[in-house]
Each structure stands twice: as structure tokens, then as C-alpha cells.
């Protein structure tokens, strides 16, 4: 038997710490989101109920931020899965070669790069006048692009950067998923005369389903809080072309000191995150229990 005191001594500090630093911000944000707190206004903040949320839903800039975040998430995750799968297959086929371990580690380096650096790096590389990207485009005779500075392609550029950084992550977990498929399944299906695409559809995809779901959830959470790269590279611009929800909440709270309104946006981000992850976890559990 383990005494109550022992249990408390082991588990207590961690749980207490989390309660303070996790629950406090949550409830405080919730509280602030129902007030008119604005540090630039001399008037004291008042309780205004759900007015901030009502205003948010009808705010065109917030709608645009939601739309941009959705495009960013959907575009990035789709491309990361598709490209990641192809590359995982390549690494899977050559996995038995010894030097491949090194190659794989080098390949995944982008996902360990500090997001701030990712933003800086591509601000330089995609700089319209002195960036190497346009120099290379010129060299092969293609038209140059404004990248982050052009309203039409700014969001696409951000997606591209996102895909560069995170395809290695999806590739890596899909590779782990592929490695877990028993060799015999391939051999048996090959004997039955299955084509490679039939093998992909009937053997690999089901094997990768859980792994992909976990990967997609993690990437979705990341995209909902996506901030650093946009903060560095575009600040949400040009215009509102790359305004994402974290950037919106940041601007409200710390640029306009409109903290009630900013908190409401932040709380919405949290709720969307919780909603999506709860749904996905429930789905995962249903799979586990057959």
C-alpha cells in the first residue's frame, strides 16, 4: 500500500504548479473577455457579457483572420501529408542502407529550426530585390515574384514556408508507420498480383491512418497558434492578406491595448483548439476499441 502522504508528495507539486500557471490564465482570460478593458482609455473597464464575442463574429478583419488560418492550416497540412508520404516511401525503400540514418536526420533539420529564424531566413531569401529566390527565377527565365510583399502570393508564401519546415515531421511519423507494417503483408499481396497503388491503398493507408490523425491534430494545433513566422515576415500584411487569428489577438491586446477584445479572440482560439482535439481524441479512442 502506498500512503496518501507519499502520493501527495510525488504528484502534488506538479499538479499544484499546473493549477496556478494553467488554470489562472484560463479563467482570467475568460473574465477579461467579458469586460471592456482597454488600457488606453481612462474609463474603468465594465462587465459587458458576450458583447466582445458578438463584435468579434461580425468583425470583417477577424473573419478574414479565421479564413486565412483555415486556408493556412488546410493548405499546409494537405501538402505536408502528400509530399511527406512520397518522401517517406523513398526513405522506406532505402532504409536498410547504413548511411541513410544520417541522411534522414539531415533531412528533418528544418523542423528543429527556431520559428523566428525560419521567418528571418525566408524574409531574406524571398526579398524581392536581393533575395536568392528571385535571382534563381531570373536565371532560369521565369517571372519574379513579390512573395511576402505581394497581396496575391503572400499567404501562399507563408504556406510554402510552413510546408518547408513541417513536411519532415509528417514524413518522419509516416516513415515510423510504414516501418510498423509487417513485410509479409507486402509479399502476400505481391503474390496475389497487387499493383503498387493497390498496396498503397489497401495496406499502407490503413496502417498510416492513426499516425496521420495524430500528426494532423498536432499540426492543426500548431497552425491555430501560428504566430512567429507571420510576426517576422509580414505582420499580417500586405493589408490583411496574411492576418491569422494569433496575429489578430496579439494586435488587439498589445498594439491597441484593447485587452478585453483581444482576450475574447484568444479564448476563441483556445476553444477551437479544445473542440478539435477532443473530437479527434474521441475518434482515436473509438478506433482503438474497434
Amino acid at each position: 500500500m502506498v500512503s496518501r502522504t507519499t502520493k501527495l508528495l510525488f504528484i502534488g507539486p506538479g499538479v499544484a504548479y499546473l493549477a496556478i500557471i494553467g488554470l489562472f490564465p484560463f479563467f482570467y482570460s475568460l473574465y477579461m473577455s467579458t469586460t471592456s478593458l482597454n488600457l488606453t482609455r481612462p474609463r474603468r473597464s465594465q462587465f459587458i457579457g458576450i458583447d466582445n464575442y458578438v463584435q468579434l463574429v461580425t468583425d470583417p478583419l477577424f473573419q478574414k483572420a479565421i479564413l486565412n488560418t483555415a486556408i493556412l492550416a488546410a493548405g499546409s497540412i494537405t501538402l505536408e501529408i502528400v509530399i511527406g508520404f512520397v518522401i517517406a516511401k523513398i526513405f522506406y525503400e532505402i532504409a536498410h542502407i547504413r548511411t541513410v540514418n544520417w541522411l534522414r536526420t539531415l533531412f528533418i533539420l528544418p523542423m528543429m529550426v527556431t520559428p523566428v529564424i525560419t521567418g528571418l531566413m525566408f524574409t531574406y531569401i524571398l526579398n524581392p530585390t536581393l533575395g536568392i529566390a528571385n535571382v534563381l527565377l531570373r536565371m532560369v527565365g521565369l517571372p519574379e515574384s513579390g512573395w511576402f510583399g505581394s497581396a496575391d502570393v503572400a499567404l501562399l508564401s507563408v504556406i510554402m514556408v510552413n510546408v518547408w519546415q513541417w513536411t519532415p515531421f509528417l514524413m518522419l511519423i509516416m516513415l515510423a508507420g510504414l516501418m510498423a507494417v509487417p513485410r509479409e503483408l507486402y509479399e502476400a499481396s505481391a503474390l496475389d498480383g497487387a499493383h503498387w497503388y493497390q498496396q498503397s491503398w489497401h495496406i499502407e493507408l490503413p496502417a498510416l491512418r492513426d499516425v496521420l490523425l495524430v500528426g494532423a491534430i498536432i499540426r492543426l494545433i500548431d497552425n491555430l497558434r501560428f504566430f512567429d513566422v507571420v510576426y517576422i515576415a509580414t505582420r499580417g500584411g500586405p493589408g490583411d492578406a496574411t492576418e491569422v487569428i494569433s496575429m489578430f489577438a496579439y494586435r488587439q491586446s498589445f498594439q491597441f491595448f484593447n485587452m478585453g477584445y483581444g482576450s475574447a479572440a484568444a479564448v476563441l482560439i483556445l476553444f477551437i483548439t479544445l473542440f478539435v482535439t477532443t473530437l479527434a481524441m474521441r475518434y482515436l479512442r473509438r478506433i482503438e476499441h474497434g
Binding site: 500557471i21 490564465p25 482570460s29 477579461m32 491555430l224 497558434r225 494569433s246 496579439y250 484568444a266 483548439t273
Partner: peptide
Amino acid sequence: DLKMWVLSNRMMPPIAAAVPLYLA
């Protein structure tokens, strides 16, 4: 339940925690 609660703290977006933590 306690384990799940621990995990759920991970979902907190930094932007939602920033203002309360600043004031605290």
C-alpha cells in the same frame, strides 16, 4: 481524469496566456 487534465493544459495557446501572465 487527472492525467487528461494535465494533457489538456498543453492546448493553451500562448497568446491566451500572455495577457494574464503579464498582469500576474
